[in-house]
Amino acid sequence: MIHSAREFWTVFHGMVLGSIFLLSFSGVLVGLYGFRPDWLTPQGIRHRIRLLKIGTVAMAIASWLTVITGTYIVYPWYRAKPPEGVANLLDYPRSYLLSVPDLAIFHTFGMEWKEHVAWFSPILATVVAYLVWHYSDHIVENLKLRNAVAVVFIISFSAAAIAGLFGAFIAKAAPIL
């Protein structure tokens, strides 16, 4: 149950957009793998191109929305400094994590890496979407180019996966309520 705007945005940032991103990734990866003229009819290739266009654009949009909501909506709540004299730090996740020695690594390693590396994902996902939209005929004809696009696509997902994994750990250790 969602009780506050903070919870809503945290769930939207991590779960709603994250789910769209994951689903898009799975679909596009399978689509790229089978994007071969010797496996598909010409009609099948056109259908596959349409699906790849939708999938890559959905992934790029989800990726941009994830980092933007994360950086400009959720992160300010996470890093807010507690006022003087506040004893209960649970409303200030960054300060809370740093105050508990066993949990400090979630900030010093997890958040510090996640907040930066997450931004690789939309950049790389956008390039993949651009290439699929404008050069799908090159991609289907050139095995090396298709593999190159797949590599960029997998790195985009990997950056998001790092961010998502640490995001889940941090949300568990110090949820934004």
């Binding site: 003229p37 010409p42 290739i45 004809e141 095995l143």
Partner: peptide, 14 residues
């Protein structure tokens, strides 16, 4: 797209 019904697309490793 450039791909058409009747064009047989050949895979290359250019």
């Amino acid at each position: 797209t450039i791909l058409t019904h009747d064009r047989d697309v050949k895979r290359s490793a250019s």
